[in-house]
Write a protein that binds this DNA or RNA. Sequence first.
DNA 1: TATGAATGAGGGTTCATTCAT
DNA 2: TATGAATGAACCCTCATTCAT
Lengths: 204, 204, 204, 204
Amino acid sequence: MAPLNEDQLHAIRDERREQIIDAALGVFARRGPVLTKMSMIAAAAGISHGLLYHYFKSKDELFIALVREAMLGAGGGVEEMLGHPGTVIDKLRHFLHEAMSEEARLSFLLIHQARASEGVPEEAREIIKDYSMDWFASKLKPLFFEGQRTGEIAKDDADLLIAGLLTAMSGSMILHASDEKNIPLIHPDHLLRLVLAPEHVRPL
Amino acid sequence: MAPLNEDQLHAIRDERREQIIDAALGVFARRGPVLTKMSMIAAAAGISHGLLYHYFKSKDELFIALVREAMLGAGGGVEEMLGHPGTVIDKLRHFLHEAMSEEARLSFLLIHQARASEGVPEEAREIIKDYSMDWFASKLKPLFFEGQRTGEIAKDDADLLIAGLLTAMSGSMILHASDEKNIPLIHPDHLLRLVLAPEHVRPL
Amino acid sequence: MAPLNEDQLHAIRDERREQIIDAALGVFARRGPVLTKMSMIAAAAGISHGLLYHYFKSKDELFIALVREAMLGAGGGVEEMLGHPGTVIDKLRHFLHEAMSEEARLSFLLIHQARASEGVPEEAREIIKDYSMDWFASKLKPLFFEGQRTGEIAKDDADLLIAGLLTAMSGSMILHASDEKNIPLIHPDHLLRLVLAPEHVRPL
Amino acid sequence: MAPLNEDQLHAIRDERREQIIDAALGVFARRGPVLTKMSMIAAAAGISHGLLYHYFKSKDELFIALVREAMLGAGGGVEEMLGHPGTVIDKLRHFLHEAMSEEARLSFLLIHQARASEGVPEEAREIIKDYSMDWFASKLKPLFFEGQRTGEIAKDDADLLIAGLLTAMSGSMILHASDEKNIPLIHPDHLLRLVLAPEHVRPL
DNA sequence: TATGAATGAGGGTTCATTCAT
DNA sequence: TATGAATGAACCCTCATTCAT
């Protein structure tokens, strides 16, 4: 019954924080900030709602922390993709598979919620503004230009291609995550067709 | 002196109803049923919140009425498309342009909200169940088969193609409707590429 | 299409007022002032709710007018009873039959509502205070004294006898008027037993 | 440091629940379910209205809980009376004293409200249907028959006697509980006279 | 650290009352 | 006189947040 020592407390603290963040990501991503109730997060994390407030000052702060983390992941994903070996198509395919993977999807949805929902705290808006669709686009543009040079990418306006690709991807993920479970996720290789030059389109 | 006559009252009622429905469609479509406050609809319609209840018994009833109307439009749009003259591609392009047009978009979003949101009244769920994505798919499938026969449509699994097309379209519209106004709507002709046979892909 | 002349308007006005008062008595008596909605009175009177306000400035004023009228009737009933021919028992039996008759009952209930309900306008309270149970008691007391002298009435404290008789009567009428329609009205001759000397008790 | 232990929490919960039930009984019994505002109960219990909802899901549920409890008491009271020692008159007098006692009166009024008021939740209606006036009557009838055999009870129709007794009692209690505090409760022994054979009537 | 009792602001809905016609 | 559209105060209920333990 000796009191826990400093390290043990620290360990508990970190573990709890992780629990909460995991739980909150799942709920916020699917429901958006307003429809997410603190009690849902507490239940998902297996703790009392009171305890949430020891780790995060408010719902807004928790949401902001999640958005911040998700943005790092998303930004990193793009960087990582650019370093992926292979052709432009290889890079893009890799990126799409990554972004739509089970683990990344929640972060993507969260960012969508932060972007599209009502009742998002101002600070969260600021964060995603820095990594907005424009930011993605600016990162992808050189890649698209190269793809157009090599003939892999369609010759249309690169901005439109990129925006189309990203919104179609996000949109499909959003719908797939909605309650109607029988809406399938669009296949990354199908998505790719939005931007491929015709001669590179392959059957699935 | 005399009270308003039958026609005048009718005119007022119809006008108000229209005002409310227009206002409510805009708010519901963007925010979903729970985040939509009756006061927002009232403000958008330029009336007091109390007056809403002269025209609709409850928020749920209003939402249901809107969904019902939107479903009529959506269902009709598909039928109309099938009767459109021209090739399979012509029909599809026509459909996409219609569905993504300024007027149709809100209805589409509303249906999305009814499908994907929390707090949707049971009756609204029933209505869209009849015209679910499956229903759309079943209508489009013969067209896709024909397109595959004529070589206009890619030879992949028709179900996947259809689901991909529809979710990409819906998703883009959702994102575009969100508050961040600089997210562009995907171009219908780009969407079409998701399903076209390569040799039919044309630059925008 | 000539405009109505003064007299016709007056006639209409009186008729409408009567309609409203009749309708309102029925509703107020059964439901009490707060649970009575102006729309119920309007419906019962067969007019629009707006028109009510041409005849009575407010719900309170209408209720007060009804209470005033009912109190007159109730007071008159007592006076009339005292002048009724016959023995003390005859007078009392006559009074009970009158008070519990179909026509008088609504007025009685209304007074009960004014006495017992929440949300009764102050002025209505004032009116019935003037004709409160004390007033009734003071009118009945000489009669009871006489009855005790003649041996018709039990020898107990007259105040208690009177209060018991009146509350039992009112109470039975209240329950009878409630929605559960199978609660029978107590028989006036049974009520009488509450106060009769034993040797005057007769089987029903 | 440590959270409250199981027992302490339980104690608080029970105490609060009791507080609320007591407060609610007083208000519901006097005002009926519709005129009772949750804020009144909260004020009477000395807590915030929000806290009410930690203990009872809704106003209806609280009312139903009270009715259920009151019916247990009322039903039990009748059974207990039948086992009371002494003559039929002794039993009845005991019953009347019990039913009109300070503690029992509020329950009686509550049941009256559940029977007679508007806006009573369906479930509450179901509960009292089982113990309706008919149920009381059926329990009392054998006793009255016996009393008529022994000559204690008047020879009139037993159903009418019972109904008269019960409604007079209820009615008096209702009036007595109303705000005008100077309406005295009818004396149980006076009530008894409604049903006694003349030779058993005694001065108070 | 951890719990859950407690509070109160805010949103849906009803209904008395006003007012244009 | 007569109608019903229109307003807004007040009530039920939810849920973010605080706090005693």
